[in-house]
Amino acid sequence: MATHTATHKLRRVFVWELPVRFYHWLNALVIVALCATGYLIGSPPAFLSNAEASDQYLFGWIRFIHFVAAYLFFFNFLFRLYWGFVGNKYADWKNFIPTNRKFWSEMWEVIKIDIFLQKDKEHLSVGHNALAGFIYFLTFLAFLVQCITGFGLYASMSDWWFADMFVWVGGIFGGDFGLRNWHHAAMWFFIIFAMVHVYLVFYHDYVEGRGEISSMGGGWKFIEEEVFDKEKKKATH
């Protein structure tokens, strides 16, 4: 290997605080649980058993897991919204909602470089890039739809005032028929999002070598000294 490349000194940047990482992994876990149990609730496999029905509660457990996971998902989501106001700059709500021109121009930049793969160019983002941030914002809207439709379906089974707050939802979606259909369709958004999300994490790690995958473990990303200095200059201006 004669092609000698420049060696870089890397700066360690603390990007994802513990609460953000905790949110991320709890969210991942409950979404997997919700999708798996939700799919089974929609299309139950043919369970066959010789045991008496009174000795079995399989489908009941599947639904129970779905409901428990849904509550965790909802309160975890609320917590993340709160953290968007008190967390560090990479957790801030401004990463997700386009509030200025720069946000939009960065989004266009990311689309050109990472989606349409401009030749041998890379886009540096220490935290979320603008496109990712905006897509997370869309996922938050999907979270909202899923929570509202889900609790709307759940309301008639619950005596708790919190779940009962959602009884109005059915009326908007044309009764439980429509509610259920939309709730089920929205699940596919989560599945497809997860596929793309995981792929892109690998993509960034592979192309840029800055520790994208491990950042959600320890919280650190590693960026080259000269890139760091450039970013610092940008930030102080």
Partner: peptide, 19 residues
């Protein structure tokens, strides 16, 4: 996209690997 990435970003990827 994964295939295209290897073709379009090969210089970047090779640099990281070489380093």
């Amino acid at each position: 996209h994964a295939i295209a990435t290897n073709l379009r970003k090969n210089k970047l990827i090779n640099n990281v690997i070489a380093e």
